[in-house]
Design a protein around this nucleic acid. Structure first.
Length: 103
DNA sequence: AGATTGACTGCAT
DNA sequence: CATGCAGCCAATC
């Protein structure tokens, strides 16, 4: 498969600075013409070997969505905490404080 | 070609 | 504040 449509989405995710996070809807809005589902689907296509910080992409609740395989949630949350993002007891980040407003 | 599913979002309950 | 339902586009069966 060669979903070139994912290319811009990956680009946007790559632009997210460390210590910041973006929601699927936010990215979809930045890319334009794409929806949250698209971003999520594109993200699932991102290989772990990629330079794309897919861990900075979270859902609108500020929580981390479970990936297809393995316990990606714990790993992703750990990576985000390593970047300075704190999670509350509910496992949700403060989007009002960490949400990346984009370029 | 039609139906189902998916790392989602927003509003209603 | 947690849960439920409907809408969105693309990929897969």
């Amino acid at each position: 498969m060669n979903p070139t449509l994912y290319q811009p989405i990956h680009e946007i995710i790559r632009l997210i600075p460390s210590g910041k996070v973006a929601t699927y809807g936010q990215i979809a809005e930045i890319v334009g013409g794409c929806t949250a589902r698209m971003v999520g689907y594109a993200a699932s296509s991102i290989p772990l070997d990629s330079d794309i910080p897919w861990q900075r992409v979270i859902n609108y609740k500020g929580g981390i969505s479970l990936r297809s395989s393995g316990s990606g949630e714990l790993l992703q949350q750990k990576l985000l905490e390593a970047e300075g993002i704190k999670f509350d007891k509910s496992g949700r980040a403060d989007l009002e404080h960490y949400r990346w407003e984009g370029e």
